[in-house]
Nucleic acid binder design. Sequence first.
DNA 1: AACGAACGCTAGCGCTGCTAGAATTCCAAG
DNA 2: CTTGGAATTCTAGCAGCGCTAGCGTTCGTT
Lengths: 190, 190
Amino acid sequence: MSIQSRRERERAEREKLIVTAARELAEAEGWEAVTTRRLAERVEYSQPVLYSHFKNKVAIMAAVAVEGCADLAEELRAARTAAPDARRALADVGAAYAAFAERRPALYDAMFSQFVALPFATPEAPPALHAAFGELVEAVRPHAGGDDLPMLTETFWAALHGLVTLMRDGRLPREHHDHRLALLLARFTG
Amino acid sequence: MSIQSRRERERAEREKLIVTAARELAEAEGWEAVTTRRLAERVEYSQPVLYSHFKNKVAIMAAVAVEGCADLAEELRAARTAAPDARRALADVGAAYAAFAERRPALYDAMFSQFVALPFATPEAPPALHAAFGELVEAVRPHAGGDDLPMLTETFWAALHGLVTLMRDGRLPREHHDHRLALLLARFTG
DNA sequence: AACGAACGCTAGCGCTGCTAGAATTCCAAG
DNA sequence: CTTGGAATTCTAGCAGCGCTAGCGTTCGTT
C-alpha cells in the first residue's frame, strides 16, 4: 500500500516536472521550440515517458495553460483589490491583464491563443480559469448598469484579448497601447 | 520580347493558381491540411516549384491573406454604405466583420491570427489592408467625438477581433454572440 | 544542328509528433 | 536468496513535415 502511494507520488512529481519544463522552455524560446524530444531531454527521460502522462503534446500545453490561469487570476485579484475605487479597479485590472500577456506571452498563448481544447465556458473548465474570469466579473460589476454582467464581462475580456494579441503579432503599433487601453476603459466605465 | 512576356504571364498565372489552391485547401480543410506536398499535387507541379514563386510557406499564406483583405474590405464597404444612419452603419460593419470571420475562418486566420509577418500599421502594408481598415475608420468616425479617430478604430477593431477569435476557439459560447456584439456597439455608439 | 540557359524534376536532409515492442527494473512469492 | 511476473522505461522506427541540392530535360538562339 505505501509502496503504491510512493509510486503515485513520484509519478505526480514527474508530471509536475514535465509541465514546469514545458512552461520554462516555452517562455524562454517560444512554443515552436517545445518539441517532445527537447522536452524529454530536459526532464532527463525518454520521449515515450511523456506519453504515459499526457495523451499528446496539446495536453501538455493545456496543463501549462491551467497553471497560467492560476497566475493570471492572482495578478488580476491583486490589481483589483488594491484599487481605491471601482473606476480605477477596472483600469488596473485591464492594465494587469495586458501586462500579463506582454510579460508572459508563451503562457498567454497556451491559455488563449493556441488551440488547446480546454473546456471554457462550462462547469468542467478548470477552477483557475473560473477564478480569473471571476476577477474580471468583479471588476466589471460596478459598471454594468442594467446590462447582463457575465455577457458584458465576456465582451470586455474579448476587447482586452484583441488588443494584446493584435499588438503581440505586430498588427497594432506597440507605442499607443496605453492610449488604446484608455479609450477602451472610457467606453466601459459609464 | 513577346516570348519573355508570355513566360512572365504564364508565371503570374501559375502563381495565382498556387495562391488560389492554397486558399481553397485551407478553407476546405484548415491550414494544418495545407502542406507543401498537397499543395504541389493540387496545382500539378512538384514541390520545388512553389519555392520558385514564394520564399517559404508563410509567404504563400501571406498572399492568401492579402486576397482576404480585399474581400473583407469589400464586404465592410457594402455593409457601411447600405446602412441608413451612422449608428446602424457601425452595427452593420461590426456584424459584417464577425460574419466574415465566421464564414471564412481559414482566410481570417491567415489575415489576423496566424503569424504571417505581413506589414501592418506601416505604409508598406498592402493597399487592401488599408482599405479594410479604412472602412472601419469611416464607420467609427461619426462616433469618435473628441477621441483620436485612428486609435479609437484600432480599439474597436481589437474588440471585434477578440470576440470572433475567442468564439472560434470555443472560449466564448457561440449562442450569445449577437448579445455580446450589441453590448460592444452600445459602448461605442455615443 | 548544336549550344546554353532556363526550368522542373527526383531524391533526400533534418526535423516533427507519436508508438510498437524489446529490455530492464522492481516487488512479491516460494 | 532466488525466481516469476508485472510494471516501467528504453531503443528504434514510422509517416509526414518544410525545404533544397543537383541532375535531366526542354526550349529559344545562334
